[in-house]
Design a protein around this nucleic acid. Structure first.
Length: 578
DNA sequence: GCTGCTTGCCAC
DNA sequence: AAACGTGGCAAGCAGC
């Protein structure tokens, strides 16, 4: 059986440093019907090379993996799944496609300890001068081995020539580790109990209906809604129809959004909101979704949900997902995420990760002090900055997202006074964005430049004959981009911390394996992980998760005294986690 | 029938 | 009543 713990056994786990000093890279490049493997020594000289057919590749990789090389290949997502299917895993890789995407626009800006995160001008002054083979790449099949080696060398030079090669190297390593983890998580899948899911749906919607018909509960609600609105033919799923019907019933709604309707006093509102809630559940995670995305159980295991994780899929460096909507797994159906018999889920999420990251990257000692406890928001209350935890959260998120109005806007002066370094940091990033400049994360991922249209609008507004509407539009647009760059630096750095956390965790989990199996990552979402673990190993897993978080903090921010608090629980099903 | 846009809602 | 960042996705709907 293909256990998640199918890793090649190693005698010398847990002391990688010494071994990394003797780093050997093995280049994997398509060649004819198979691949060409080229072993490089530390001076990047070729020491061995050979062709291998695709069907023999997994065996060859497994054999070579004993020496713990770093696999250098163009695209983990294209190659690694096949190795995984053959039961072969690797410890380290360098993903040329992902690293290229980072380096392509990296700016060799001057950085200092105080403002290393901050914006640096020079649009277009990326490390590499022009497009390379990877820019036109749609498939890796046509790249010859020499071109792969050339790209690798280029990237090494780019890193070496940057002003923070250490940070960039860490980012590329983390990004590449993420690519391995993403493929492994897709391969292993998230344990899923189809019966629990079906019961949950039936309890809320009624039993599974024939294809193409509404479940009983939804049909009932639709009838009630039609009666209240005197609209016998109304399809509640059509916003346009619904809006017309609401209006003829005397309800002055602008849209049919739930938060707008929630304030309306009318007997149709309650059943309508209930309809929306259930309809969403049905269309997003109902029986069709179940049939499409859950692989049925086999020999003693539960079913599995296998979403595609897309490392680097979000501009900020967060992962995207594709298929099954794994980015928004509703709380309502998390009870269907159930560990296999004899196994547990260890669920961990980083508490208030973005404020903590902001404290570290801005070197704000005051905010770092607030990070010492488990609840940073509560610390703001205890420090007397705000009066309630809710206010602390609103104020902090407002600062990170660029809120100017409402409660967040009102609380902002207090935050400015209490944490000048942290608030300044995000303000600087926002100002840079408003000017159309590039900003960078702590490890050096750079924000995209605004579009040509954006610049045109700004240009038009600065003409002497500019209309007030032009100027208003330009100001609006500049602020929009400023909010984006403001959030970019923090969200992106938090994503870097999370990548390091996972990479460190993955390494530690391999050391926990025993005969029952290897605890392994089965889910990741921005600041949260789920590890599927044999029940008797969960204590070690919890410790590994905490250790990994501390290591990640150290890797990024050295000795700066910021804490990365976690909420960690061991449960049978995901809904039991807070 | 296909494609792309809009609306609305889920997650962090 | 969206304000305030990043995404994916389903259904409706207009246009080809």
């Amino acid at each position: 059986m293909e256990a998640p713990g199918g890793h090649a056994a190693r005698a010398d786990r847990g002391c990688p440093r010494e071994n990394y000093a003797l780093q050997v890279d093995i280049l994997v490049a398509p060649s004819g019907p198979g691949v060409r493997l080229t072993t490089l020594d530390e001076g990047r000289g070729e020491v061995a090379a050979g062709e291998v057919s695709m069907d023999l590749l997994p065996g060859r990789v497994a054999a070579l993996e004993v020496d713990r090389p770093r696999w250098v290949w163009t695209d983990t997502s294209a190659l690694y799944p096949e190795l995984l299917r053959a039961g072969v895993r690797v410890e380290r890789c360098f993903d040329l496609r992902l690293c290229h995407a980072i380096l392509r626009h990296a700016i060799p800006g001057r950085t200092t300890a105080a403002d290393a995160w901050a914006a640096h001008v020079t649009p277009g002054a990326g490390i590499d001068a022009g497009p390379t083979l990877l820019d036109e790449l749609t498939t890796v099949a046509d790249i010859d081995p020499a071109a792969v080696l050339e790209e690798y060398a280029r990237q090494q030079v780019a890193v070496q020539g940057s002003l923070e090669p250490g940070r960039l190297r860490l980012l590329l390593a983390a990004e590449s580790a993420g690519a391995l983890i993403a493929a492994e998580m897709k391969h292993d899948g998230l344990p899923w109990d189809l019966d629990v899911h079906d019961r949950q749906l039936a309890a809320m919607l009624g039993p599974r209906p024939r294809t193409g018909t509404r479940p009983a509960r939804l049909e009932e609600l639709a009838t009630t809604i039609r009666a209240h609105l005197a609209a016998p033919a109304l399809n509640p799923d059509s916003p346009a129809e619904l809006l017309r019907a609401l209006r003829s019933a005397g309800i002055e709604a602008r849209t049919t959004r739930k938060w707008e309707l929630a304030d309306v006093d009318h007997p149709v509102i309650a059943p309508l909101l209930e309809y929306k809630r259930l309809s969403r559940l049905l269309t997003a995670n109902g029986w069709v979704w179940m049939d499409t995305w859950i692989r049925p159980p086999e020999d003693g295991r539960r079913g599995r949900f296998h979403p595609d994780y897309v490392p680097g899929g979000v501009v900020t460096g967060r992962w995207a997902t594709s298929g099954g909507g794994a980015l928004a797994l509703p709380k309502q159906i998390r009870s269907a995420v159930v560990a296999d018999p004899g196994w547990k889920l260890v669920v961990a999420d980083a508490a208030q990760i973005e404020p903590r990251v902001l404290a570290a990257m801005s070197r704000d000692e005051q905010l770092a002090r607030a990070s010492q406890g488990a609840d940073l928001y509560q610390a703001l209350v205890e420090e007397g900055i705000v009066d309630t935890r809710a206010h602390a959260k609103v104020a902090m998120l407002g600062a990170l997202y660029g809120a100017t109005t409402g409660e967040a806007g009102l609380l902002m002066p207090r935050l400015l006074r209490a944490y000048p370094k942290a608030t300044n940091a995000v303000e600087q990033a926002a100002r840079a964005g408003e000017r159309g400049e590039v900003v960078r994360t702590w490890l050096g991922r750079t924000s995209p430049l605004p579009s040509a249209t954006w610049h045109e609008v700004q240009g038009r507004a600065s003409q002497p004959d500019a209309e007030p509407t032009d100027q208003r539009l330009a100001r609006q647009q500049a602020r929009d981009w400023g909010r984006f760059t403001r959030n970019f630096v923090v969200q992106g750095t938090a994503a870097e911390w999370a990548l390091c956390w996972m990479a460190e965790l993955r390494r530690r989990l391999l050391a926990i394996a025993d005969d029952a199996g290897t605890p392994h990552l089965v889910f990741f979402l921005h600041d949260e992980v789920i590890v599927h673990s044999p029940a008797h190993l969960t204590q070690g897993v919890e410790a590994a998760i905490r250790d990994a978080a501390q290591s990640a903090g150290g890797l990024l921010f050295g000795t700066f005294p910021v804490e990365f608090a976690l909420d960690v629980v061991t449960v049978d099903s995901y809904d039991e986690a807070a």
